[in-house]
Write a protein that binds this DNA or RNA. Sequence first.
DNA 1: TGAAATTAGTTGCATAACTAACTATATGTC
DNA 2: GACATATAGTTAGTTATGCAACTAATTTCA
Lengths: 146, 146
Amino acid sequence: MSNNQFRRGELYSVINGMASTAVARKLQKNFRQAGLEITIEQWSVLYHLWKEDCLSQQELCNRTFRDKPSITRLIDNLEKQKLVKRTASQTDRRINLVCLTDAAKELQSQTIDLANHTMNEALVGVTKDEIETVKQVFQRVYDNLT
Amino acid sequence: MSNNQFRRGELYSVINGMASTAVARKLQKNFRQAGLEITIEQWSVLYHLWKEDCLSQQELCNRTFRDKPSITRLIDNLEKQKLVKRTASQTDRRINLVCLTDAAKELQSQTIDLANHTMNEALVGVTKDEIETVKQVFQRVYDNLT
DNA sequence: TGAAATTAGTTGCATAACTAACTATATGTC
DNA sequence: GACATATAGTTAGTTATGCAACTAATTTCA
């Protein structure tokens, strides 16, 4: 095992365990402290609907990098909380369009402020160039594997 | 919301969804295809035990960035598969030392080869400097939030 | 047109994560 | 020595993930 290979194996451990879960945990904690009952996974679905409402479940799979059963259940839970509503597509009856409720629209600015605040705290001392590098590396890794 | 803040919010979405789960899924798939019945989470525990055997559960929490209930159940499952064994510490009866079995020791080289192979595939076209930047950013993010 | 293949979504089962509450042992302090 | 506090680990409940198998609707194409 070369030294280079070993360092690459280490990276996996770093990527998987450390930063992403630290950010997720912090954001979840900030939601809870603000009295918001949503999970970060649910939030990440809402995030994409705020950008474009009434997406199909398949489109939400693509945009959130989740599989279909995961989205089915996230939408189930979001529907229970009355944050989204499934509507059958007029043109293709296989498709559920997932649309935001008024309650979900009210969450938008508050939660996005919390997310930005969390990311600002997370990225203290990190430069724009470094952020750009991380994004490019991650896109590359994703493309390499899919 | 400034442009900079928005970009930072985007980064969360990238970190959380994309690269780390893509690597994890690929590695899990490679394990399965090689006939190995372990999950990547179990593997990440074994990985730290290969580096240093007979750690306490608390120490495994620290090294894998997991909480205590998660480690309890991972060790439960690893014990069911006869890959580790809990041994009460002689000096502090609160502590379980988690030690590898011979079966687990045999898994080491095969699974680490698979992990290195997966990471090599993931990191095609990524330079050493970029990897170094990602590691530094992640360490910084982790330190900023904990 | 009608059978085969594809696509969208759901369900069941196993593993894993987080929180909160819990037991047991060890330590610190008066 | 005894009581309060801290530490190690477990358990229960909810949510989320991955896989495989499934239904229903649509498209392809012979």
